[in-house]
Write a protein that binds this DNA or RNA. Structure first.
Length: 483
RNA sequence: CGGGGUGUGGCUCAGUCCGGCUAGAGCACACGGUUCGGGACCGUGAGGUCGGGGGUUCAAAUCCCCCCGCCCCGACCA
């Protein structure tokens, strides 16, 4: 991670020239986050946290509406818990942070800082579940977790990150699978409807699935450089964890059964998805439904006389638009032009300018972030202003989704040959028949660095020939380079 | 952990090869004034253990040795 802190007057690097540097600098400059004094860790600054809070609310609302409750489990997990599920410990042990000393004393058993909480929650569920009447358990927690990654990026991959992790237990396989897919649908709706990030829901391959899961499902998003980002995951854990932690219950026939569990998570990585899906050379573009500031009001006044005209109008706007998240930028030390650029860089969807000329005509000037320059500007009369502004924000939200969807669709292609697949990967995603063998999957990865992102839920049906080996195939898969 | 690079005010860097005045510049910051409808300007000012330790020398940011941090490329990844 670079410790660069660019000055606000320099232009951002261009996306087309250096996407990665554009990303890093934009985060620092827009004050979403900053580097912490610990390698690979970030400080989420108020602007970034406010965005995260809006993401939390949007998701939490949907979780609650489907019967889930929030709870909190410990940060520390006994090392032995991790070891109870074979695949799970193999998957996570290389990246664990372990506490061996507490209060100056060497601990009898090392404590792991949770990389995820299936094990400790599994342990608790085994205490809580006796009868089929105790099921299902539908719990979510908002938490931080730690994974000791080698190479980190702000929001995309940090040693510590923030997320929600849902953990549910069910009486039947069918119910657990329904839950897994219900959450996948919630993630999809959240991404598309709230974040305007078009995603493709699908199933992970054996090699890409979560350590300990029977099946993993994902929402995959395409970033502005056409790389893929796993933006949320929902796992069907079968009875793996129930057996490892002894979650058993008596069913209606008085038969002892193992429960069926699921887990699902969406992290602060999603902020990275928003940045890279919508951002442009000018900076962030935040979807109105999640933006910490939906409307910034910039007063324009050269002197006290003009201020006396303009400020009363702004006070009135503050009241009339109180249903929106508003910021009045009344800084006197910078010019309006600076403020325009500043708030555009920080991704505020809508700007309202109020100057002497507007006051004279009894209008306000609006500028939409998603339409650059003068074309995005228009004058609004003062009657029914809240309704007009509300319509503008809705329009911005849907335009952003439309733009991002079009971009994604332009960069997805169906190769007819393996060579075609290779060239598609250079600048997009390939959708093609896949026979299901991990050999073919690995060959693509070795040849192109692209991984199997998912087997989309939406399948064409029928069958074809595997793009690699030519054997009969029943499913199509997306291949892309990923973050 | 392997390969490459780099470390000088808050940020970007010059100075290092070839040792020598009080270590500079731009931006950011503070104060004053003029500005203000698309990134304003002038003036004044504050801010530095030159990554750390050791050595050579009359003299070290500069030369030598050791250590550390960070960045890029690879193995690993929500």
């Amino acid at each position: 991670m670079s410790e660069q802190k660019p000055t606000s007057q320099e232009k951002l690097p261009l996306q087309s020239e250096n996407f990665s540097e554009w990303y890093n600098q934009l985060i620092l400059r827009s004050e979403l986050a900053d580097y912490a004094p610990v390698r690979g860790c970030m400080v989420v600054r108020p602007y970034g946290w406010s965005l995260w809070e809006n993401i939390q609310q949007a998701l939490d609302r949907r979780f609650k509406a489907t019967g889930h409750s929030n709870a909190a489990f410990p940060l520390f997990i006994p090392m032995s818990f991790l070891e109870k599920e074979k695949e799970h410990v193999e998957g996570f042990s290389p990246e664990l942070a372990v506490v061996t000393i507490g209060g100056g004393e060497k601990l009898e058993e090392p404590l792991v800082v949770r990389p995820t909480s299936e094990t400790i929650i599994g342990y608790m569920y085994s205490k809580w579940v006796r009868s089929y009447r105790d099921l299902p358990i539908l719990i979510n927690q908002w938490a931080n977790v730690v994974r000791w990654e080698m190479r980190t990026r702000l929001f995309l991959r940090t040693l510590e990150f923030f997320w929600q992790e849902g953990h549910t237990a069910h009486a039947t396989s069918k119910e657990a699978m329904e839950e897994t897919l219900r959450i996948l649908e919630i993630y999809t709706r959240f991404a598309v409807d709230d974040a305007a990030v078009p995603v493709i829901p699908g199933r992970k391959s054996e090699t890409e699935k979560f350590a300990g899961a029977v099946n993993s499902f994902t929402i995959e998003a395409m970033m502005g450089d056409t790389k893929a980002l796993q933006a949320g995951t929902s796992h069907f854990l079968g009875q793996n964890f129930a057996k490892a932690f002894d979650i058993q219950f008596l069913d209606e026939a008085n038969q002892l059964q193992f429960a069926w569990t699921t887990s699902w998570g969406l992290s602060t990585r999603f902020i990275g998805a928003i940045i890279m899906t919508h951002g442009d050379d000018q900076g962030l573009r935040l979807p109105p439904r999640l933006a910490p500031i939906q409307i910034v009001i910039v007063p324009i006044a050269r002197n006290d006389e003009e201020k006396a005209k303009v400020m009363p109008v702004i006070d009135r706007l503050r009241q009339e638009l109180s249903e929106f998240r508003i910021k009045v930028d009344d800084r006197s030390e910078v010019t309006p032009g600076f403020k325009f650029n500043d708030w555009e860089m920080r991704g505020v969807p809508l700007r309202i300018e109020v100057g002497p000329k507007d006051v004279e005509k009894n209008v306000v000037t609006t500028a939409r972030r998603n339409v650059p320059g003068k074309a995005g500007k228009s004058a609004l009369g003062m009657e029914q202003l809240a309704a007009q502004v509300g319509d503008l924000l809705k329009d911005i939200q849907s335009s952003m989704l439309a733009r991002a969807s079009a971009f994604r669709d332009e960069h997805i292609h169906e190769p007819r040959t393996y060579d075609e697949l290779k060239s598609i990967i250079e600048d997009g995603w390939a959708l093609s028949w896949w026979c299901g063998s991990s050999e073919c999957e690995t060959k693509i990865k070795e040849d192109t660095k692209a991984t199997l992102r998912c087997l989309p839920m939406e399948q064409p049906g029928g069958s074809g020939r595997c793009i690699v080996c030519g054997q009969p195939a029943h499913e199509k898969a997306y291949f892309a380079r990923a973050y």
